[in-house]
Amino acid sequence: MSVTHPPDRLSDAPTRAAGPRRTAAALLTVEGLLIFVPFAVLGNAIGWPASLDDPAATALPRLLDQEGAVRAGYTVYLLYSVLFLPVAVWTTRALTGGGDSPFSRVAVGFAVASTLARTIGISRWLLAMPGLAEAHGEASDPAVRESVAVQYQVLNDFGGGIGEVLGVSLFAVGWLVCTILAALRSDAAPRWLLIAGFFVAAGLALPLAEIAGADSGAATSVGTSLLHLWFLAAAAALFRRPR
């Protein structure tokens, strides 16, 4: 009479752990490379991201002239920003070995806040700015153009503060730091990657100087570039991690 032994659940653990690692690595790779699409499209069309600081008299006519490219570029950028949430959640899960801790839960909360702030900031270029560009182009009265220019500046500053300062900087830093602190309690991630993450978080935090009224200059681009290099390094580390 044959005896059926219960499945060895411990032997399935490496397989179960490999699933989140592969998923996170794939998402990190897509996110790390997808950013180059809006950079290429918007950079060629309007000189983005340097164009974010242009005055209305320069930005609105150019937006009207390049509306198709601007919509396409910012639509991809919006997709990239929405994708940040699953990327962040799966990365936290993979780097912590699926463990549940206060740090990992807070990290997910920061990821949700970052995604929401990013999408609000980007939406101004798809929903409001094209209308302002049309109004600016059709206005023959200098007073009307000046009024449109003021609206543009206020909306751009407000949307940029939410999207770049809060979404790309503050909340993303919160997610990254909390994820690293949670991951340090496990052996699911290489230590060099976690240590590098602290330096990336410091770079991402530079635009927060704008809250104090300082000009952060190209700090947002520098921090974002560091983050994407870290994304690709994390993807490579997770792909190569022993099953």
Rank of each mutant, 00 (worst) to 15 (best):
S114C: 12
A25I: 00
V200E: 11
G203Y: 06
L206H: 05
T29W: 02
I195M: 12
P142R: 08
T92V: 15
H136C: 00
V89C: 04
C178I: 00
A13D: 07
G223I: 05
R105F: 12
F39K: 03
I180C: 04
L64K: 14
L60A: 13
A117M: 05
E31C: 00
A188E: 05
A111P: 12
L78Y: 13
V165G: 01
V82D: 09
V168D: 03
L238D: 07
R124T: 11
A233W: 03
T179I: 02
E210Q: 13
V76N: 12
V89Y: 06
D141F: 07
L208T: 08
A214E: 05
G161M: 12
L63V: 10
R62V: 14
G131C: 04
A202M: 13
D8V: 06
G68C: 01
L166G: 01
S186D: 02
P142C: 07
L52Y: 13
F231R: 02
V173M: 02
G98E: 14
G99Y: 06
A88P: 11
S104K: 13
G137L: 00
V200L: 11
L10K: 12
E134R: 08
A182T: 02
G109T: 13
R145Q: 15
S101K: 08
S169N: 02
M129F: 11
F39V: 10
L42R: 10
S221C: 00
L85S: 11
S216T: 14
R22V: 06
A128R: 10
G161Q: 10
A234Y: 03
L155V: 08
M1V: 01
A113I: 13
L194V: 07
P142H: 09
R191V: 12
V154L: 11
V112M: 14
M1Q: 01
L10G: 13
I211W: 10
L204S: 05
